[in-house]
Design a protein around this nucleic acid. Structure first.
Length: 595
RNA sequence: GCCCCAGUGGAGCAGCCAGGAGUGCUCAUCUCCCUGUCAAGGAGAAGGUCGCCAGUUCAAAUCUGGUCUGGGGCGCCA
């Protein structure tokens, strides 16, 4: 070994020891005589002192060192003189008196500072990701990811699960997200698809009797990116046989508790549970951030007899009038209020009615259309206090009302500082919520048909089976999500294991037996051979780690992520390929030539 | 496909609303000084086609249109 210790591991106990350290020059403080180097490795920083009187040769070399040179230092650990201790670094009680230094390699001046005192534009960080990953912060994130993945594996190992790999080159299924395709050289004109999830394979494991399966696996979806979405991402894929909804919920909750205990030393309380309906009614979204209040209020009763046209027509057409009360929102300027109206329109609302609760009563563009009872009822039902701002959305479509107010609630929560800063050691900082009883179907306006909210293999709650053909909106599924602080962390369901039942569902989805055979024939065939009752869940690893790390986007916990336009500034991928390569794959590009 | 924000020496920002010479700040870089600093300090220097293209104007970093890149969001994401 070239080194005896890691820089960041040295402590007072090491005083007197001769050590060999390898690392990068974090900073240099040259006093002409004595020269200090902060040496950095994965474990952290340590101060190295070069004194001309102690080691003249090493001191000469120290003068030539620059940021990010990779070096080895041999020296003696000594406790620092009184008054020179640095409490801001973990090794601050000691320093290393250099006796010799070896320069492994010099470094050009880096394109951005590595010592982590200022943010850098992300595209630059990604182009030089290897330098970005030199930062202790990024290394800590990757280390946390490793720790979480390890804890997950230990948990499932201890519960009798077996990790099995599934193919990366598989068959395209036209539902769901767009696929990434892999052309076949051997089969002209045919394509493999990269998996959006190993869904069908894990169900086949259950048919096979493999009982308890899990896998930590890459999945691929060709959709537009977000802070919590990358085209390739990692899932913890889990499936179990002979279980119902409660069994999966219990075990998964136990898993999260075990990971948080092991990795963050936090003992999580039992997870909150909300049905989908309750979540939508109270928070307007199916991934509620319950770290703050500002819940939606239903004003249907208040405005039951209203003359105000926007409210009247919304209620008459079977829609809803809902509000939120933004604490302290009354201080917004007219311009800011106009901005909110614009935001609401952008989100799909016809408009947004605001009403400020002032000492002189309501101040609102709607005020003249309201009766006294309505004014009182509005403030009361919205739980608004003086100084608050009530935001009201009315629409003939309840879904629009929820969507707009749900989004505004999240934005207002952030803008008005209602979301407490994450205190990672506080069990109360982690608001896990189970969302259950999802509707089975959602209406697809564009295609004028009913689509599954989860996927076509999702089980149906028996009591609602009767509506499968007559009233799809009333069918409840055996699907569930875990959300954490407003992020969807996991999705799962109990599956259909009965072939006849599965065919009935396909039929309700408008999938003919021929189409079903074409797309999922291999699953249906498998289901002829004694499939067990089964179900599972698939938490997103990138999101879990990002939340645990306190990051607001998953790129911070992925070593080599892509930009929002699906580009990797480091490698330049995606890139053009030779005509010959295309020919071999029986492909011809129709893309216009590059400028 | 759509909406919003940003792009100014190597990094991070201010300047833009209200047009008047590339003006400023912090850090980095280079030279010199300095034996206890720790985001060292002091003195000096070098470094920019204000993302790009067009328009308005006597004059554009600044106003207008377009475009590219990055970020946040809507749509999309079974």
């Amino acid at each position: 070994m070239m080194r005896s210790h890691r820089c960041g591991d040295l402590r007072g106990d090491h005083a007197g020891e001769t050590v060999e350290l390898c690392g990068w020059v974090n900073s240099r403080r040259d006093h002409g005589g004595v020269t200090f180097i902060d040496l950095r490795d994965r474990a952290g920083l340590v101060q190295v002192v070069f004194s001309p009187g102690v080691a003249a040769e090493a001191h000469d070399v120290a003068q030539t060192l620059r940021a990010e040179f990779c070096i080895r230092v041999t020296g003696v650990v000594q406790t620092r003189r009184e008054g020179t201790v640095n409490p801001r670094i973990s090794t601050g009680e000691i320093e290393v008196a250099a006796e010799a230094v070896e320069v492994f390699s010099e470094a050009e001046t880096p394109p951005f500072p590595i010592d982590g005192h200022q943010d850098t534009e992300e595209s630059l960080r990604l182009r030089y990701r290897y330098l970005d990953l030199r930062r202790n912060h990024m290394q800590d994130n990757l280390d946390l990811r490793h720790g979480i993945v390890g804890a997950i594996r230990r948990f499932y190992d201890a519960h009798g699960f077996v990790e099995i790999e599934t193919p990366m080159m598989t068959r395209s299924t036209p539902e769901g997200a767009r696929d990434y395709l892999v052309p076949s050289r051997v089969h002209p004109g045919k394509f493999f698809a990269l998996p959006q999830s190993p869904q069908l394979f894990k169900q086949l494991f259950m048919v096979a009797g493999l009982d308890r399966y899990y896998q930590i696996v890459k999945c691929f979806r060709d959709e537009d990116l977000r802070a919590d979405r990358q085209p390739e991402f990692t899932q913890l894929d889990v499936e179990m046989s002979f279980v119902g909804v409660e069994d999966v919920l219990d075990l998964t909750e136990e898993m999260f508790k075990s990971v948080w205990a092991e990795v963050l030393d936090v003992s999580l309380p039992d997870f909150m549970r909300l049905t989908y309906d309750e979540s939508m009614r109270r928070f307007g979204v199916d991934k509620p951030d319950v770290r703050f209040g500002m819940e939606l209020a239903d004003l249907g009763t208040v405005f039951a007899a209203t003359e105000a046209r926007v409210f009247r027509s919304a209620l008459d057409s079977g829609g809803a009038v809902n509000s939120i009360a933004v604490p302290g929102g009354g201080r917004l300027t007219r311009k800011e209020l106009d901005g909110l109206v614009e935001e609401a329109k952008q989100l799909g609302a016809g408009g947004l009615v605001w009403a400020a609760v002032t000492p002189d009563g309501l101040k609102s563009p709607m005020d003249k259309f309201l009766s006294d009872e309505e004014r009182t009822g509005l403030v009361g039902a919205s739980s608004a206090r003086e100084g608050d701002l009530i935001l009201i959305v009315a629409d003939g479509r309840v879904g629009v009302v929820h969507k707009v107010l749900g989004a505004l609630r999240n934005r207002m929560g952030e803008r008005f500082g209602l979301i407490p800063e994450l205190e990672r050691s506080d069990p109360g900082a982690w608001k896990f919520v189970w969302i259950t009883d999802f509707p089975w179907f959602e209406y697809n306006e564009e295609e004028a048909r009913w689509d599954p909210i989860h996927h076509p293999f999702t089980g149906v709650v028996e009591e609602t089976l009767q509506y499968l053909e007559s009233d799809p909106a009333r069918v409840v599924s055996k699907a569930y999500d875990i959300t954490l602080n407003g992020w969807e962390l996991a999705s799962g369901s109990i599956r259909i294991h009965d072939r006849v039942m599965q065919e009935r569902v396909f039929s309700a989805l408008g999938i003919t037996p021929e189409e079903a055979e074409e797309r999922f024939g291999f699953l249906l065939r498998a289901f002829r051979y004694g499939p067990p009752p089964h179900g599972g869940i698939a938490p997103g690893i990138d999101r879990i780690v990002a939340l645990a790390a306190g990051e607001s986007n998953i790129r911070e916990v992925i070593a080599f992520p892509k930009t929002q336009s699906v580009f990797d500034p480091l490698t330049g991928a995606p890139a053009a390929v030779d005509e010959a390569q295309l020919e071999l794959l029986h492909l011809k590009s129709t893309a216009p030539p590059e400028k």
